[in-house]
Design a protein around this nucleic acid. Structure first.
Length: 471
RNA sequence: GGCGACAUAGCCAAGUGGUAAGGCAGAGGACUGCAAAUCCUUCAUCCCCGGUUCAAAUCCGGGUGUCGCCUCCA
């Protein structure tokens, strides 16, 4: 049974989908006005792995992740760059796809854009108007929070408390200070659409309600996003959606913890915003992916070069084991398992169970990772043993790592190195030199190959060739 | 003022009632012609105080510290 922490109830709850065997997830995606940063990446990676895990567990998952392609930030940036909002969106959607792809994030099943769903958005607003949950003021439409009794339930604040803390100046035209815009009246030079209330554009919150209702139905199973979206964004989504449908909007609310940089919040004013585009120049994206999964998704984490270095070493360890497995596999035969090998086969089953147990428990990737390291130790011992190895043992081990990698997706599965003729010759010459105990020549060749990024390791079973990792 | 999160070894990080996973770094050892990789050993009583309990990192109360949200920030 899979349990997930639900922000709405502040408890871990069993995942019980509306339709058995199917899980509908809506994840709030990027506003495509700039490259996405390392904090966004944490959220996207988390939900990518969540999604892959649910698929692994046999669910028919539908993941919807939107692109916000119309809002103030879009409009300002487009003006700044001297291009249309639509061009801006196209450009950064493409950038998103490239960077997300590098991080191993699989495309969502649907990636709807707000501007392509204006009819759905208007229909939803219309409905809220009919139910007296929204009102018009001079071409703007506002949601009336006092008319929705559950307002504040996600952030666990009541309206009085919210106003008390509010630093926003009161707009006298609104019935209540917390009322928020569903539709904004057209301003000169901004994109706008014809609507029953005159030309204008949608507010931010309404797009997610409209598109999730459209793609996933009145009640979805998991609604996800970064922690900072709890208020007001997701609070408002609940108000809009439940206001319109009178049904529960989402069974689970999953929020990913913050990522800080060197103990500080990322912000433009501090100038410490790290984009994936930037990081990709110097860091293997798979290391970033590993790093994100090394802590529980709800814990706030800190990001720094030092941590990345640690993550890189740790990941290297797993990759080495997988590589050595692949390399060895091509050189051994089948056979009847001895005691040690039977134990190893049992350990695989055991590891799989422990892995699932960890993941089922609110998606504890950190604990799940430990299972991989524990197994790696035993496997390495087996790989080193002088009696040799068997194909029918190495294969299931490798399959297990591949199986897990289908979820975590941070390991290299490149297969054993294939050598060019001249390299092969050098390796052979070194072997000959070693046989003659001509260590100087042997070491010279090894050094020469290292220059080319080829590492030679001498094992009891002969030389092992490794291409130095690169990305 | 309200809501909330976090505080575990030098560092990162699991663990929510039964005497502390895993990784990085360090130390010692094994293997090796030397390396590399790997293996073995070693390295914490869990922010403080009080309480509940046979038993608490884990529950309760009170502190301290760091941080987040309450502004269309993931």
């Amino acid at each position: 049974m899979i349990k997930l922490y639900n922000t709405l109830t502040r408890k871990k709850e069993p995942l019980e989908p509306v339709k058995e065997g199917k899980v509908g997830i809506y994840a709030c995606g990027p506003t495509v006005y700039d490259f996405f940063h390392i904090g966004n990446a944490r959220v996207f990676i988390t939900f990518d792995v969540l999604r892959r895990y649910l698929v692994y567990r046999g669910y028919d998952v539908t993941l919807v992740q939107n692109y916000t392609d119309i809002d103030d930030k879009m409009i300002n940036k487009a003006a700044e760059m001297g291009i249309s909002v639509d061009e801006l969106a196209e450009r950064f959607i493409r950038n998103y796809e490239e960077d997300a792809g590098a991080l191993g994030i699989l495309p969502a099943d649907f990636q709807p854009r707000a501007t392509r769903h204006i009819p759905q958005i208007m229909a939803l607003i219309q409905k809220l108007m009919e139910k007296n949950l929204a009102y018009e003021v001079e071409g703007d439409i506002y949601f009336h929070v006092e008319a929705f009794p559950g307002y504040g339930k996600l952030s666990q604040q009541n309206l009085e408390e919210l106003i008390l803390g509010s630093r926003v100046e009161i707009d006298e035209r609104k019935k209540h200070p917390m009322d928020f815009a569903l539709w904004k009246k057209e301003k000169p030079g901004e994109p706008s659409w014809e609507s029953p209330w005159g030309r204008g554009r949608p507010g931010w919150h309404i797009e997610c309600s409209a598109m999730s209702l459209y793609y996933l139905g009145d009640t979805l199973d998991i609604h996800a996003g970064g922690q900072d979206l709890i208020f007001p964004h997701h609070e408002n989504e609940i108000a809009q959606s439940e206001g319109a449908t009178s049904k529960s909007f989402s069974r689970h609310w999953v929020h990913v913890g913050y990522l800080n940089i060197d103990q500080e919040k990322m912000s433009k004013s501090l100038g410490n915003v790290l984009t994936i585009r930037q990081l990709r120049e110097t860091v293997d994206p798979m290391v970033i992916r590993f790093f994100m999964l090394s802590a529980h998704y709800r814990t706030p984490i800190n990001f720094s070069g030092e941590y990345l270095e640690q993550a890189s070493k740790a990941l290297e360890r797993l990759n080495t084991t997988v590589y050595n497995l692949e390399e060895r596999l091509g050189k051994v035969k089948k056979g009847i398992p001895d005691d040690e090998e039977s134990a190893l086969l049992n350990l695989i089953e055991n590891s799989r169970e422990k892995f699932m147990e960890a993941m089922d428990d609110d998606f504890n990737t950190a604990e799940a990772l430990a299972v991989l390291f524990d197994l790696a130790r035993k496997v390495n011992t087996y790989l080193n043993r002088p009696q040799g190895q068997k194909e029918n043992i190495l294969e299931p081990v490798l399959d297990f790592y591949r199986e897990i990698n289908g979820i975590f997706g941070f390991m290299k599965e490149q297969g054993p190195a294939v050598l060019q003729k001249d390299i092969e010759e050098l390796v052979a010459r070194r072997e000959e030199a070693r046989r003659l105990k001509d260590w100087a020549s042997a070491d010279a060749i090894r050094a020469q190959l290292k220059e080319k990024g080829i590492i030679l390791e001498d094992t009891p079973q002969g030389v092992r060739t490794i291409f130095k990792r690169r990305w």
